[in-house]
Amino acid sequence: MAAKDSPLKQFEINTISNIEIGSYNISFTNSSFAMLITVLVITLFLTLTVNTRSIIPSRMQLISELMYNFIAQLLSDTVGDNGKKYFPFVFTLFMFVLIGNMVGMIPYQFTFTSHIIVTFALAAVVFIGVTILGFVNHGFKFFSFFIIPGVPFYMHPLLIPIEVISYLSRPISLSVRLFANMLAGHTLLKVFAGFVVTMPFFTGAFPLAFIVALTGLEILIAFLQAYVFAILTCLYINDAYHLH
C-alpha cells in the first residue's frame, strides 16, 4: 500500500501559510486551522444560543445551559465552594477538548487532540497552574503534600521520591490518555475504511456496518475524554486546596 493511503496519513501536519519569526517556525497549519474552527464554533454557539436569554429556553439555549450546569455541578461536587473561581478555566478546557474532538469526527477534518504535543501543552498548563495554586494557598507547607501522614519517619526517604514521581506523572497520564484514545480511535476507523474498499464483492458491507457502530462509539469516547480531562483538573485543583 502506498504511503499516501496510510491510515496514519490523517495525522500529518500540513502548513497552510508559512510564518517564521527568528528561528522559530510558527506557521499556520491544518492543526491551527482546526483549533480556530473549534474556538469559533464554541464562541458562536454559546453567544448565539444564550443571546435571547428567554426564561423558557429554546432547545439550543438548553444545550448551552446544560453544559454550563454540567461543569458547575462537577466543580461544586469535587472542589466545593472554592471551585467557583475556576469555573471559567475548567469550562474553557472542557469545551475546547470536547468540541475539538467533535470537530475531528467530521470526515476529512483534522483532529488536533490526536497530537500529544497539544494535549501535553493543555495538561502542562493545568499542572503548572495547580502547582502555583498550591504554593499560593499553603506557601512552603505545600511540600508536606508529599509526606503521607501516619508513616514512620524512616520510611520517608523511600516514600517521598515515590510521591514526587507520582505527582510529576500527572500531566503525562492526563495528556497520554486523551491523545492515545483519539489516535487509536481515528486510526481504527481509517483501517476499517480501508477494508471497505479492498474487500471483494459485497463483503465490504460488513466493515462498513462496523464503521457506523464505531463512529457512534468514537463520539461517546470524544465526550468521555473531555469529561475525564475536566474532572481530573477539578481533582487536582481540589488537591491544591486540601493537602491529603
Binding site: I165, L168, S169, I172, S173, V176, R177, N181, L224
Partner: peptide, 21 residues
C-alpha cells in the same frame, strides 16, 4: 478496555517520569 487503558496509562506515565529522572 477503557478501564484497563486508564490503569495502564497511570503505570506508564509514572515509569516515564522515573526513567527520565
Amino acid at each position: 478496555a477503557g478501564f484497563g487503558f486508564k490503569i495502564s496509562t497511570e503505570i506508564i506515565a509514572a515509569l516515564v517520569v522515573g526513567v527520565g529522572i
